[in-house]
């Protein structure tokens, strides 16, 4: 499904515009994108394999991103997960770190920090020299 040179990033957000925009940005950075509107489908998609990084929103109507991450980690998924949220609440940040998030990013900084995050959390990119 995914070609080895292009890492696959899954973006999970209930807002279709944010999904679309981040997906475009990710595509521009050379990634395959799997857009999901909530965390419920994420488990299945991860189970299918091939996902290299997950960008996971916290506040979604059907599920809490941090709880969703906890469940994933409990089931043994080790894929890097970036929690992104509009809420700069230290308590949520702590919860996210405890749940096993690789980064906690505020929404308005996500696009600015995206290159750095991809660089850090997708080591295969540089190894494969796909940039």
């Amino acid at each position: 499904m995914t070609c080895p040179e292009r890492p696959t990033v899954s973006i999970v957000d209930d807002d279709p515009h944010i999904r679309a925009m981040v997906a475009e940005e990710l595509a521009d950075s050379g990634c395959e994108v799997r857009s999901l509107s909530n965390g419920l489908g994420l488990e299945r998609v991860l189970g299918e394999g091939g996902i290299d990084l997950v960008l996971l929103d916290v506040q979604m109507p059907d599920c809490d991103g941090i709880q969703c991450l906890r469940d994933l980690r409990a089931q043994g998924f080790t894929v890097p997960v970036v929690i992104f949220t509009s809420l700069d609440d230290p308590e949520r940040r702590r919860q996210a770190q405890e749940a096993g998030a690789d980064a906690y990013v505020l929404k308005h900084q996500l696009l600015d920090r995206l290159p750095e995050l991809l660089e850090r959390l997708l080591p295969r990119r540089s190894e494969n020299g796909s940039q």
């Binding site: 807002d15 515009h17 944010i18 925009m21 981040v22 940005e25 506040q59 509009s86 809420l87 700069d88 929404k107 308005h108 996500l110 696009l111």
Partner: peptide
């Protein structure tokens, strides 16, 4: 409020 205001702001500035 943060959520409702920041999401549109993020979309606007992103685009």
């Amino acid at each position: 409020v943060s959520h409702e205001l920041r999401n549109p702001l993020m979309i606007i500035s992103g685009y």
